[in-house]
Simulated assay, not measured.
Amino acid sequence: MLYITIISVLAALLFLTRLFFIKREIKRVTMQLNQFNHKQTEKKVDLAFFETDLEKLASEINRQIDSTMQAQAEKQRTENELKQAIANISHDIRTPMTSILGYIQLLESADIDPEQRTEYTTIVKKGALRLKVLLEDFFELSVIESADYPLNIESIKLNQIVPEVLVGFYEAFYQRGLEPIIHLPEEEVIIKADVSAVKRVIENLLSNALKHSTGNVIICLEKRRSSVELTISNPAGCLTEKDLFFLFDRFYKADQTRIGKGTGLGLSIAKGLMKKMNGNLTAELQEEHLMMKCEWKI
């Protein structure tokens, strides 16, 4: 009987001791969380007393801390991007708007000859068209990024769509004195995608290549074992690896001297459309050639 009593007392002491350490550790964890929540520290929760359930709890808390810090970093990045976008929009709108208003004042003058009036009217028209393109691109990008953007995913023949889009760029290539080098397979290349979205992606990539290329543009369509790849490449000697990191950001222009040469939204729109179609758009720099690669999984 005495033996049982002693064992019971020891068990009770062991239980109370364990309970004491667990409660103390819970208080310690609570204090660490309080410091984290009040931004006094960014350190994760650590334990001084190790117990299976406490370790699981600490692990889940630390996982939540990681998620919270990641969300905060993403929020900060988005806010910075939004501020930059607003600044760029303001600049891109202000520049042609100032020009338009200035030339309208000149047109209101009574002592200008018909030739000058025609010239000023042409300048005003170009400025208005640039504003139209900017606003349309910005609206399209905002729509694409919405969760309910409609897509009609179906089986389409990519080796037929690429030439259709290229025909529309014949005049642009001719005016630049450039020749598209086209590599298309004879066999049918079928992907699951939205026809209009695919055409828009190709148009944006070709437009970007035409604006910035210092040589001929190469269009290559390949059917691989598990994917289809469309690559549009062009010489881009002024481009750096650093530029590739920002290339798909809104309003980013690698050559900041090209004022009025585009909104800087074309590649962002293409990237967004590819993502919506469960595809991927990447950029590589190989031997001073910019390679834009669209990939669809088969």
Rank of each mutant, 00 (worst) to 15 (best):
198 V>K: 00
5 T>L: 14
227 S>Q: 04
285 L>W: 12
115 E>T: 12
169 F>S: 03
26 I>A: 05
10 L>R: 07
281 L>I: 01
187 E>R: 09
162 V>T: 07
15 F>W: 15
213 S>V: 00
104 I>Q: 13
195 V>P: 02
164 E>Q: 15
240 T>A: 06
28 R>H: 14
14 L>F: 05
191 I>A: 08
70 Q>D: 13
252 Y>C: 09
231 T>Q: 07
43 K>V: 02
100 I>Q: 06
194 D>V: 06
124 V>P: 07
4 I>Y: 13
113 D>A: 11
263 T>F: 02
29 V>T: 06
281 L>C: 00
296 W>S: 04
190 I>F: 09
95 T>M: 11
8 S>H: 05
130 R>A: 13
286 Q>T: 07
11 A>V: 13
188 E>M: 10
64 Q>K: 05
158 L>G: 00
183 H>G: 00
206 L>V: 15
277 M>P: 12
62 N>S: 13
154 E>M: 00
198 V>R: 00
18 R>F: 10
183 H>P: 03
144 I>F: 03
258 R>F: 07
218 I>H: 15
54 L>H: 10
97 M>Q: 08
41 T>D: 08
71 A>P: 03
269 I>D: 01
154 E>P: 01
48 A>Q: 11
34 N>C: 05
236 A>H: 02
15 F>S: 13
193 A>M: 03
21 F>W: 14
227 S>R: 01
28 R>T: 04
68 T>E: 07
217 V>L: 02
252 Y>T: 04
200 R>S: 08
24 R>F: 10
8 S>N: 06
289 H>F: 03
248 F>E: 06
50 F>G: 05
33 L>D: 11
296 W>D: 01
90 S>A: 13
120 Y>N: 11
236 A>G: 02
70 Q>S: 14
82 L>C: 05
237 G>I: 09
175 Q>S: 02
187 E>Y: 04
35 Q>N: 12
104 I>Y: 12
205 L>K: 06
59 S>I: 04
229 E>M: 08
155 S>I: 09
246 F>Q: 07
160 Q>K: 15
6 I>E: 08
56 K>A: 11
264 G>F: 04
60 E>W: 09
164 E>V: 07
15 F>G: 07
251 F>P: 00
82 L>F: 09
58 A>I: 08
33 L>F: 10
286 Q>Y: 03
111 D>C: 04
293 K>T: 05
